[in-house]
């Protein structure tokens, strides 16, 4: 979503993005003229007149589970976004009985929060796992 019109979205997709991705952008490119939606989400930069790089993860109940906001010159890490969705999906499937510690990726161990875990995380989770 950006402040550009859907017509500009079409030109960008048809003339540039479709040369990067076969078939063009697969998801809807939303237009937020005047930044009204961006203002509600707190990421519209009123002085510059554009949206900043805000990224929101919204779960199937419509609840915001996470967000990240960057200033314009730095691009996002898509793999990290996907990793976070995978983590939130695992938590949701476990109905909150599992938690993903720092550095978690699909296939890596999770923690089972409960009284026995208090003071014992060090036995299950090692610092290196945060950087793995």
């Amino acid at each position: 979503m950006s402040i550009d019109s859907m017509f500009v979205h079409k030109m960008w997709n048809d003339n540039e993005l479709s040369k990067m991705v076969d078939g063009g952008v697969p998801f809807p490119m939303l237009s937020d003229a005047g930044g009204k939606v961006g203002a509600v989400y707190g990421i519209y930069d009123d002085n510059a007149g554009v949206e900043t790089r805000g990224r929101f993860l919204i779960d199937p109940d419509g609840v915001v589970q996470g967000y990240e906001v960057l200033t314009p010159p730095v691009g996002r890490n898509v793999n990290e976004t996907i990793r976070q969705i995978q983590a939130f999906q695992l938590i949701r499937e476990s109905k909150g009985t599992e938690a993903t510690p720092s550095g978690w990726k699909p296939g890596k161990m999770t923690l089972k929060p409960g009284p026995e875990l208090v003071g014992n995380v060090w036995k299950e989770w090692k610092t290196e796992m945060a950087f793995d």
Partner: peptide
């Protein structure tokens, strides 16, 4: 469904 809502400064 899970939704990723991304804002960005501008096309092009």
């Amino acid at each position: 469904k899970w939704v990723v809502l991304c804002f960005y400064p501008g096309d092009f």
